[in-house]
């Protein structure tokens, strides 16, 4: 039984950063903007929250700082992509480079190390030190994990049950109609991108001050891209994104699990590939089962945006 508890624990641990970022990216995607820079935003968030936690002495103010920084970066991204009409994909890949290189540079400039930067101020874990029993499922998980159901619900309400959510979808799907109806498409896209930035900051913070209590170079290792895929695979619907993120979280946990228990007798590296292979399979499945899912988003770009 304890293996099952440990497994659930690592599923939750693996899903949380993916889900925070994916729930945020949902808004950018619904607003018709490919935000491929999630990875960069998460790294910036992870670094800013560690820096904030060290400087300000509290992980929560660290997270607030991270959110502020990521929102600022998102505004710049909006300016470049929406106002200057840069290619969103290339700008997004650039944002990843800025995140990877910029945090590494600042790490050297501020903390004078290229190794890990750890913080004493961390997000508390309500349950800790429980090694056995059902409660061990929640052992050492940060509060940001517990906040996920709330976040998912709020995202669902905002995306599906508010005026703003409707405007976001309209801006993404039929910008001309949205314009004609008086929606200020660019401003709505700005709002959507800022939400994406803020939630990526939380996802990144979960990695640094939440679970690992440290920042290290390129620590997201593809989580941002996986989160982006979760939005595609979840067909831009809040609950679909939750489900997709859990599938990727389970793949991550399976990797860790079989690493410990040597289940398949495969070399370690092949097990570590699992989340990426599952992502490819998920994309293939989505493209095969819902052929229009991908093309709708692309169509929004090629034909309808602005």
């Amino acid at each position: 039984m304890n293996e099952v508890y440990t497994f659930v624990n690592s599923v939750l641990l693996g899903t949380t950063p993916i889900l925070w970022a994916a729930l945020g990216c949902l808004f950018a995607h619904r607003a018709g903007i490919y935000q491929l820079g999630l990875e960069g935003l998460m790294l910036i968030g992870a670094f800013a929250s560690i820096g904030g936690a060290i400087a300000l002495g509290s992980a929560w103010t660290g997270i607030l700082l991270a959110m502020a920084v990521c929102v600022l970066v998102s505004v710049v991204f909006w300016f470049v992509v929406v106002i200057l009409k840069a290619n969103a994909i290339i700008a997004g890949l650039g944002l990843v480079g800025i995140g990877v290189g910029g945090t590494s540079f600042l790490q050297g400039a501020i903390f004078h190390t290229s190794g890990a930067v750890s913080a004493n101020a961390i997000i508390g874990a309500p349950v800790s030190g429980t090694a056995t029993g059902p409660l061990s499922m929640l052992s050492s998980l940060s509060l940001l994990v517990y906040l996920l159901p709330v976040a998912a619900f709020v995202v669902w309400v905002v995306a599906r049950r508010t005026n703003f959510g409707l405007r976001v979808s309209a801006s993404g799907q039929y910008p001309f109609a949205a314009k004609a109806a008086g929606v200020r498409v660019r401003l709505v896209q700005l709002g959507a991108l800022c939400i994406t930035g803020a939630m990526c900051a939380i996802g990144g913070s979960e990695l640094s001050v939440g679970s690992l209590h440290a920042f290290s170079y390129d620590m997201t290792a593809g989580v941002g891209y996986v989160a982006f895929t979760a939005v595609l695979f979840g067909r831009e619907a809040p609950w679909g994104v939750v489900l997709a993120s859990f599938i990727f979280g389970i793949a991550t946990a399976l990797g860790i699990f079989s690493q410990i228990h040597a289940i398949f007798g495969l070399p370690l590296e092949f097990i570590q590939m699992m989340p990426y292979i599952v992502t490819v399979l998920a994309l293939w499945f989505a493209g095969w089962r819902w052929p229009q899912a991908g093309s709708a988003a692309e169509g929004a770009f090629a034909e309808l945006r602005e």
Binding site: G40, A86, I90, A91, G94, L95, G97, I98, G102
Partner: peptide, 8 residues
């Protein structure tokens, strides 16, 4: 990253 960000 910076150059990619603005190149297009």
């Amino acid at each position: 990253g910076l150059v990619s960000f603005v190149v297009t």
